[in-house]
Computed example of a mutant assay.
Amino acid sequence: MDLFLFTVDPRWGADVVAAGAAGIVVDWERRGKLRRQAGEGTQINSDTPEDLSAVRAATPGRVVCRINGAGPWTADEVDDAVRRGADEILLPMVRSVEEVDRTLDAVAGRCGLGILIETQDAVDRAADLAARPLSRIYVGLNDLRIDRRSTELFRPLVDGTVERVRAEVRMPFGVGGLTLPGGGFPVPGDLLAAELVRMRTDFTFLRRSFIADMAGRDPFVEVPRLLACLDRFRAADGSGVAAAREEFVAAVEAASGRVPVAQPA
């Protein structure tokens, strides 16, 4: 499973990639986000174009730029991200196929384009969206929860929503976010990791929980430890997979209504 770290610290990001992560995400998304996520305890980044240039210069790993949701500014943001060396662009808050098609036109094959399925409209259109020539698709649980007016972050992982989207996706698929083995709240991170492996998740993100749990730790120790944990889940037999799924569902039910403030936005 590829791990993508959200950071604008070039040196630390380069170390995490050298330790085994696949790449770095620089996050430009902020238009309308404060209003949309008001009171939700989520993270809104203030990454800049200069941050993208610095990260690109620091690492040979994949550099991904999350731009703002589709609008009149999209073509300019795409051009700037490409010029500064982004290998891929992530388009958030997708609601229509037309938004994706316009962004693909703006990209014009110069880099990859991935999308975030984090609205009910996008969930309903997953098959059509997945038919586009995209570099990856990620299901964003926090904004999907907000869009559904729900208090249950992990509900789409147990009610069939994520699995229905996963069934439509042939390009790299991602969901959720991981931290170090033994961490995670209110659902233990190890159970979430096992669930991501069960769903054949190709990539996921390392964000606030991971960054907080890494304080004072060596990425050249901890990133391989996280990857080894994923490998152990991948090697589990059928009964182990089923037991982990049951534990995950039970943990989600026990955490019902509790939104972790450290969950990726």
Rank of each mutant, 00 (worst) to 15 (best):
L3H: 05
L3K: 08
F4P: 00
T7E: 04
G13T: 15
A18C: 09
A22C: 06
A22S: 06
A22P: 01
G23E: 07
R31F: 13
R31L: 13
G32F: 08
Q37Y: 03
E40R: 10
N45Y: 12
N45T: 01
T48E: 12
T48A: 06
S53W: 08
R56Y: 13
A57T: 09
T59E: 10
I67H: 08
P72S: 10
A75F: 06
D79E: 14
R83F: 06
R84H: 12
R84D: 06
P92A: 11
M93S: 10
R95I: 06
R102E: 06
L113N: 07
G114P: 05
I117N: 12
T119Q: 12
D121R: 10
A131G: 13
A131L: 12
R136M: 11
I137K: 06
Y138L: 13
V139K: 10
V139A: 02
D143Y: 05
D143Q: 03
S150F: 13
L153R: 04
G160T: 07
R164K: 14
R170E: 13
V175N: 00
V175S: 00
G176S: 06
G177H: 00
G183E: 02
P188R: 05
G189W: 01
A193I: 00
R198N: 04
L206W: 02
R207A: 15
S209P: 00
D213P: 00
R225K: 12
A228N: 08
R232Q: 13
R232L: 07
R234A: 15
R234W: 07
A236C: 11
D237R: 15
G238F: 07
G240S: 14
V241C: 09
A243M: 09
A244P: 05
R245N: 04
E246S: 10
A251S: 07
A251R: 02
E253M: 09
V261M: 02
A262R: 01
P264I: 09
